[in-house]
Design a protein around this nucleic acid. Sequence first.
DNA 1: TATAATTTAATTGCGTACAATATATAAGAG
DNA 2: CTCTTATATATTGTACGCAATTAAATTATA
Lengths: 140, 140
Amino acid sequence: MEYNPLKLENQLCFPLYAAAKEVVKKYTPLLRKIGLTYTQYITMMALWEDRAANVKALGEKLFLDSGTLTPLLKRLETAGLVERRRGEADERNVMVTITDKGLSLREKALEIPMELGRCLDMTAADSKTLYVLLYKILRQ
Amino acid sequence: MEYNPLKLENQLCFPLYAAAKEVVKKYTPLLRKIGLTYTQYITMMALWEDRAANVKALGEKLFLDSGTLTPLLKRLETAGLVERRRGEADERNVMVTITDKGLSLREKALEIPMELGRCLDMTAADSKTLYVLLYKILRQ
DNA sequence: TATAATTTAATTGCGTACAATATATAAGAG
DNA sequence: CTCTTATATATTGTACGCAATTAAATTATA
């Protein structure tokens, strides 16, 4: 029997693609409670770490481009979670700053990682291995 | 220093989400040559294995629902790669059948897995480990 | 066997994703 | 000090991706 490189079962990318979607799907009902999508959630996570960043820096951190971030940030702004302001020194930059409301949302989000962990059910060792391998891919 | 569950660095889902997108992005220029998106590509892969399947079966195999598949399959039909026909025994089903053109596209796609492998650059052992872990997630 | 419950796709609405392009600002070259 | 080049966002267009709903066909049940 000849090896078939186009068999779904022989793909590495397919389970990567599918697993990512399935896990994001598990987040959805949890994030709904705090009114965020998954992409908005990781954006807020970046801003919970550093209260301000320009679009470019956010994009590099989150692996997203302005085509995704600009409308997303406008939605977060409409929700009162962030502010967007053109940079004063360099007007090409748009500084995104988290608001008090955005900061306080963090308290409500604190339970989410643990709740998700419960429905993911992987050993610590497997999680660590997976984590390392995924960052190997991201570093390329 | 207290453990911060909401740090991007401490997430497992984030690199999963980001790596999946990055890998799909690597496929894009290769798939463009044969006129497919990544999702269309895995759909064709399913049909290269089994020349016909209904939407439900495709959805289960590919982890996609009809909201994604219906318009995607219509595009593949417009491109002449598949045919869609209501089932005769059970008219709820829509049978998707690959055309000759769809079958012959497989030849052009044969190089893609190897080309991608070259720009992914993981050891066989790492690939295998990752594969197993991703399917652990998918089985839940 | 009439009716209720289930199943299968399609549709709707919203939010990503991203390539390609446009626009505005800033930096660099001559 | 112009003119070119580079940089940072925004916009446009296409294609997902999925929750929720709808519609039609089938199956189960009283």
